[in-house]
Amino acid sequence: MRLIISNSSQEPIYEQISKQIKNLIIRGELSEGEALPSIRGLAQELQISVITTKRAYEELEREGFIETVPGKGSFVSSQNKELLKEKRIKMIEEKMGEIVAEGKSLGVSLEELEEMLKLLYEEEV
């Protein structure tokens, strides 16, 4: 399991953690039923506050990615692959929504946005 925390990022640390774990689950690197490090253990390893890791886990739990069994720890919950994909697509949709809003506020046309997207899509392999 790989987790990299950036202290200089604008993104709050709990979000960095939950996002990275989410991606690990979606990509199948963390499989169903697998145990996650304990909240306190993870905080110690990453040298961050217990509250931060707790919040990350709570978020993952709320979104149904993990389950916490009191006294035993947290585990990757059984995932519906289709549902997972849907979730990811929804995330993309949300981000696109932001792009559209930003584009509109700057007066960028749909064609221009499409062009930009096309360029980026082809660029990134």
Binding site: P12, I13, Y14, A43, Q47, I48, S49, I51, T52, R55
Partner: peptide, 21 residues
């Protein structure tokens, strides 16, 4: 890095006492 809560005191009064995040 490690604190979960921060209590900030100034001139004998608590300014805030909240989770660091």
């Amino acid at each position: 890095k490690i604190a979960d809560y921060i209590t900030f005191i100034n001139d004998g009064s608590i300014v805030f006492s909240r989770p660091k995040d």
